[in-house]
Amino acid sequence: MRKLHLGPGLGELDDGTDPAMSVGVATERATGTDLRLSGLVHPDGTPVEQARHVFETVADVVVNDLGGATGDVTMLRFYVRSDRLTDALRRELHAVRREFFDAPEFPAATMVGVDELVHDDAAVEIEAAAFVPDGEWTVETVRPD
């Protein structure tokens, strides 16, 4: 089996230190590739612009680096600075998510407010997980009664 470390040692913390991590790790499985991306930030712009840039990065890794599709993303975790997290921002972040993922097959997602993020100028940090299958998905949607 193969394990691929994406961007080991890339970036630095605000204090200039190396975070001793990979941007992501992709592992081969029997039927495809499992991907875990570390919390990604883009500290420039509004929270919506930051999220859009992170989604572009996630899409780039899944599509260009692993040969998958954005529909292969299975989980998103949003960490949003509590002092910026409003109902309006939450709706805007959901709208940005819709730009990258097709209804009704959205990835599972969690959004939590946090006191701080590692980068002072970042308002949003997003973790992502994906599974890129060797073949095609058989997709079903189940709606609760």
Rank of each mutant, 00 (worst) to 15 (best):
A88I: 05
R2K: 15
A20R: 08
H119D: 10
E136L: 02
P47E: 02
E116G: 11
G16P: 04
L76G: 03
V80H: 00
D72R: 08
G7M: 10
R97Y: 14
M111I: 14
E49C: 03
G113P: 04
A88P: 04
H119Q: 10
G71S: 09
R91A: 13
V73W: 09
E56C: 07
A129E: 12
K3F: 14
F101W: 08
L66R: 04
D115T: 06
L85Y: 02
L37W: 08
V41G: 00
A123H: 06
A123V: 02
V80E: 00
A88K: 11
V58P: 03
G7V: 03
I126A: 00
F131N: 10
Q50P: 00
E49I: 01
E56N: 05
V139F: 01
H42V: 02
V132Q: 03
L4A: 09
G113T: 06
I126L: 08
H94K: 13
P43D: 13
G71M: 04
R52A: 08
L76V: 03
G113C: 03
G11L: 10
A51W: 05
G135R: 05
D34S: 13
D15L: 03
W137Y: 10
D34I: 00
I126Q: 02
A122T: 05
G68R: 02
T110A: 15
G135K: 10
R29H: 13
A59C: 04
F78Y: 12
L37H: 05
G113E: 07
A95P: 04
T33W: 13
D134Y: 05
E28A: 15
D145E: 11
W137C: 01
A123C: 11
D34Q: 13
G16E: 14
L85M: 11
G135A: 03
F78P: 01
R52F: 01
P19N: 11
G135H: 07
Y79K: 10
P107T: 14
V73N: 08
D83T: 11
G16A: 15
